[in-house]
Structure formats: structure tokens, C-alpha cells
């Protein structure tokens, strides 16, 4: 692996000048570069908003919202979901829909338990615990 990357590094150095230019000649760098700039901009925005006390306890949600926008950009432009077959889009969607099922029904338990939040969890008894060394693999 490292040998590979050294080679890659060497190759990158050799071609820095003229060959690099030739390699990219006529290769359309757009829209990828524009999308990249947008991603970096959004990341910077996310960082700044996370550091400023603007949204209080909702600040993580704001960061995740920005992450979702960035993810959408990656999906559309880097992973070409727009040009993909319908069934490809469906399979990607299925992952997200099923994630919602997992979250939703799991929360249906946690959000409706009796008593104050988190009070249902008690430490287990110390009896019968197996020490680190005694545990089988």
C-alpha cells in the first residue's frame, strides 16, 4: 500500500509541470469545481454557526441540516444520482426510508416510557460479574 502511494506521489511530482497540463487539457472541470466550492462554503458556514451561541440546543440540528444539503450536492453531482436509473434512486431512498423506520419505532419506546426521561435505566447488580481476564473471547 505504502509503496503504491509513494509511486503515486512520484508520479504526481513528475507530472506536475508540462504533463499535468497536458493531462487536464480539455477536461471540463465544471460543475465539479463549483460544487466543491459550494461544499467548502457550506462546511465553513456550519463550523461558524456551531461555534456561535445562536441556536442554543438546536445548533446540532442546524449543523445536520447543512450536512444534509451537502450530502444532496454530493449525491447529485459527485455520485450522479440525477442521471441514474430509477431503481438506483429507489435503492438509495430505501436505505433512508428504512433508517426512518428504525429511528421512529425505536423512539416510540423511549419517548413514551413511564417516569422522567432516562429514569428507566438502572445499573445492573455487581453479583456474578466476570472480570476482564476471565472473559472468554
Amino acid at each position: 500500500m505504502s509503496a503504491q502511494s509513494e509511486k503515486a506521489g512520484a508520479a504526481a511530482k513528475d507530472t506536475m509541470s508540462a504533463r499535468a497540463k497536458r493531462a487536464f487539457e480539455g477536461l471540463d472541470l465544471f460543475p465539479e469545481v463549483t460544487v466543491f466550492a459550494a461544499l467548502v462554503g457550506l462546511a465553513a458556514l456550519s463550523l461558524i454557526l456551531a461555534l456561535l451561541p445562536l441556536f442554543g440546543s438546536l445548533s446540532l440540528l442546524v449543523s445536520l441540516l447543512i450536512a444534509a444539503v451537502m450530502a444532496a450536492l454530493v449525491l447529485i453531482f459527485f455520485m450522479h444520482m440525477r442521471r441514474a436509473m430509477t431503481v438506483v434512486v429507489l435503492s438509495g431512498m430505501a436505505g433512508i426510508v428504512w433508517l426512518t423506520i428504525l429511528f421512529g419505532l425505536t423512539l416510540s419506546d423511549y419517548l413514551t416510557r413511564a417516569g422522567p426521561f432516562g429514569s428507566s435505566i438502572e445499573p445492573p447488580p455487581a453479583v456474578g460479574r466476570v472480570g476482564e481476564g476471565e472473559r472468554g473471547l
Partner: peptide, 29 residues
């Protein structure tokens, strides 16, 4: 393409288990 995308859908759910744990504990504590 389809094969890889289906694999990626399984990856979403693989990390999804972790996100579910994060969600539950961020709400509880």
C-alpha cells in the same frame, strides 16, 4: 451500478444503527 448502490443502501443502515444509538442517548442524557 445497481449492485453498488444497493450495497450503499446497506451501508446507510450499517451506520444507521450507530446514529440510532446516538439519537437515543442524546435525548436521554
Amino acid at each position: 451500478d445497481l449492485g453498488l448502490w444497493i450495497f450503499l443502501a446497506t451501508e446507510i443502515l450499517f451506520f444507521g444503527g450507530l446514529f440510532a444509538a446516538y439519537l437515543v442517548y442524546a435525548l436521554l442524557h
